[in-house]
C-alpha cells in the first residue's frame, strides 16, 4: 500500500508545498510513466543529428522497398549474357548499369532494391512474430503463475542455453528451405526477451492498487492484460523491437549467405553477397553493393534502437 497523502501528516491549517505536490500528482502511476504527451515530431527534433539522419535513411529505404517495382531501373531477374560482370557505369561500365551487373548480366541495383524488400520483409515479420509469442507467453506466465509460469520460464532457459543458430539450422534441415519456414524460424528468435520483460512488468503492475481495484470489480485476466499491462509495456517493447530487428536481419542474411536461407531466383541481400563471393576477385561490386546495404540498414536501426533506449529510459536485462 502506498498511502502517501494521509491526512494525518497535515498540521492544522498549514499545508506544506511538498504534500500538496504529492496530492496533485496522478495517483498510483508506475515509476517511469510520464504524464506529459510527447509526440513523435517533438522527439525527432530533439534527437541528435546522426539519429535524424538514420531515421531519414530508414524512411528512404522503407519507401524504396515498398515501391520497388517503380524505383528499380531494370527487371531484377532479366539476364543478359552479353553484359555479364559489367562494372558500374561510373567506373567504366559499358552497359549503363549504375551498380554494374552480376554473373548472369542482371542489374545489381535493381536486385539490391528487390532484395531489400525481401530481407526487410522477412525481418519485420520475424520480429513481429517473436514479439507476439513473447508477450503472450509473458502475460500467461505472469498472470497465471504456478506451473504455467515454471513451464514457460523453463522454455525460456532452454532457448537461452542453446545457440540459436543451431535451432534454426535443425529447423531448416527438418522443414526445408521455403520462405514461410524461414520467417517462422527467425520469428522464434529473441521471443524470450519479450517474455521476460512482459512477465516482469506483469508482476510489478499486479501489485498496484488500480489493478487490485480492477480485480475487486471483477475484471477478467484478459481485461487486466489488455487495459493495464499492455499500455505499460508498450514503450520498452518498441525499444526491444528496434534492437532485435537488426539481429534478425543479420540472421536471415547469414543463412541466405550460407545458401540455406532464401532460395533462388528470389534475391535477398545475404544471398547476393554469397553468390558474389565466387566472383569477388574480378567483380567486387557484386559483394560490395549488397553488403553496404546490409551494413547501412543494421547500423542505422541499431543506432536508432540505442537512442530510443536512452530516451525512453528502459532498463533491459
Amino acid at each position: 500500500m502506498r498511502n502517501i497523502h494521509k491526512p494525518s501528516i497535515q498540521t492544522e491549517g498549514v499545508c506544506t508545498p511538498e504534500i500538496e505536490d504529492v496530492s496533485v500528482g496522478p495517483p498510483n502511476l508506475p515509476p517511469g510513466a510520464s504524464v506529459e504527451k510527447n509526440n513523435f515530431f517533438d522527439r525527432f527534433r530533439a534527437a541528435p543529428f546522426s539519429i535524424q539522419l538514420c531515421i531519414l535513411l530508414m524512411l528512404l529505404m522503407a519507401l524504396t522497398a515498398v515501391f520497388a517495382p517503380y524505383v528499380a531501373p531494370f527487371d531484377p531477374n532479366q539476364t543478359s549474357m552479353l553484359e555479364r560482370n559489367d562494372p558500374p557505369s561510373w567506373m567504366g561500365g559499358q552497359s549503363g548499369h549504375l551498380l554494374g551487373t552480376d554473373q548472369l548480366g542482371r542489374d545489381v541495383l535493381s536486385r539490391c532494391i528487390y532484395s531489400l524488400r525481401v530481407s526487410v520483409g522477412i525481418a519485420l515479420l520475424g520480429v513481429i512474430i517473436g514479439c507476439m509469442i513473447g508477450v503472450v507467453a509473458g502475460i500467461l506466465s505472469g498472470l497465471l503463475g504456478g506451473w504455467t509460469d515454471r513451464a514457460i520460464m523453463m522454455i525460456v532457459d532452454f532457448q537461452l542455453s542453446v545457440p540459436f543458430m543451431l535451432i534454426v539450422l535443425v529447423g531448416i534441415a527438418v522443414f526445408g528451405t521455403s520462405i514461410m519456414v524461414l520467417i517462422l524460424l527467425v520469428g522464434t528468435a529473441h521471443w524470450e526477451t519479450y517474455a521476460r520483460l512482459t512477465r516482469g512488468q506483469v508482476l510489478t503492475v499486479r501489485e498496484y492498487q488500480f489493478v487490485e481495484a480492477a480485480v475487486a470489480l471483477g475484471a477478467t485476466n484478459w481485461r487486466i492484460a489488455k487495459r493495464h499491462i499492455l499500455p505499460n509495456i508498450a514503450s520498452p517493447i518498441i525499444v526491444l523491437l528496434t534492437l532485435n530487428f537488426p539481429s534478425i536481419l543479420l540472421l536471415e542474411s547469414s543463412l541466405s549467405f550460407l545458401g540455406i536461407g532464401v532460395q533462388p531466383p528470389t534475391a535477398s541481400l545475404g544471398r547476393m553477397v554469397g553468390e558474389g563471393r565466387d566472383y569477388m576477385m574480378s567483380a567486387w561490386w557484386l559483394v560490395i553493393s549488397p553488403a553496404s546495404f546490409i551494413v547501412l540498414l543494421t547500423l542505422c536501426i541499431q543506432l536508432i534502437g540505442d537512442w530510443l533506449r536512452d530516451v525512453i529510459d528502459v532498463r533491459l536485462t
Partner: peptide
Amino acid sequence: YAVPHFIIALS
C-alpha cells in the same frame, strides 16, 4: 557489433 561476421570476413 552491428556488422555481420560474413561481411567482416569478406572485407
